[in-house]
């Protein structure tokens, strides 16, 4: 019985280590309603801001509207199965239910606007999305990540005024 207990304990410990210390939740790359590949679009030369337009002027970066996708895909590979799904969404006037990959907790009032204005590249926080088929979070969103960069860029590190109000 002793070795079995030991093995179980080791496995449990490994699980805890993987789950908590390896930040498994954020390593997940959820399957999306439409299998959109950033890599393909990036290779075609489409910039981040073309779709995620609101980053310079709002808290959220914004998801492209369904019509934005259709703008090209009315003509570009309209018969492709994933694009067929897009057409279904448009025809039924249903917004595409994307699963969120990047998020910060409630008490972090993150705003894209000043970061874009300061010239921070999207890849800095979101990783090299341009090389990802399915979006996966590669950069851990810890307070340390934010603070290190804020100090390096001489940005505001005032707890309340900058972020936690």
């Amino acid at each position: 019985m002793r070795p079995l207990a030991l093995i179980v304990a080791l496995l449990f410990g490994a699980f805890l280590w993987l789950y908590y210390l390896q930040d498994l939740p954020f390593r997940n790359a959820p399957q999306q309603a439409i299998s959109f590949s950033h890599q393909i679009h990036y290779e075609r030369g489409i910039q981040c801001a073309y779709c995620h337009m609101d980053a310079p002027r709002s808290t959220f970066a914004g998801m492209p509207s369904v019509l934005k996708c259709l703008g090209c895909h009315r003509i570009v590979i309209p018969q492709y199965p994933e694009i067929q799904k897009l057409h279904v969404y448009w025809n039924t006037q249903t917004p595409i239910p994307w699963k969120r990959v990047f998020w910060v907790p409630d008490y972090v009032r993150f705003n894209h606007q000043p970061h874009i204005a300061a010239g921070v590249q999207c890849q800095t926080c979101h990783g090299s999305i341009g090389s990802m088929d399915r979006v996966r979070q590669r950069v851990a969103f810890r307070m340390e990540t934010c603070i290190t960069c804020h100090r390096a860029m001489n940005a505001r590190t005032d707890c309340f005024g900058a972020c936690h109000h």
Partner: peptide
């Protein structure tokens, strides 16, 4: 409410 939204719903047309 206070939990993170699990979904992001875009607009249909901008």
């Amino acid at each position: 409410a206070c939990r993170q939204p699990q979904q992001i719903l875009p607009l249909l047309a901008p």
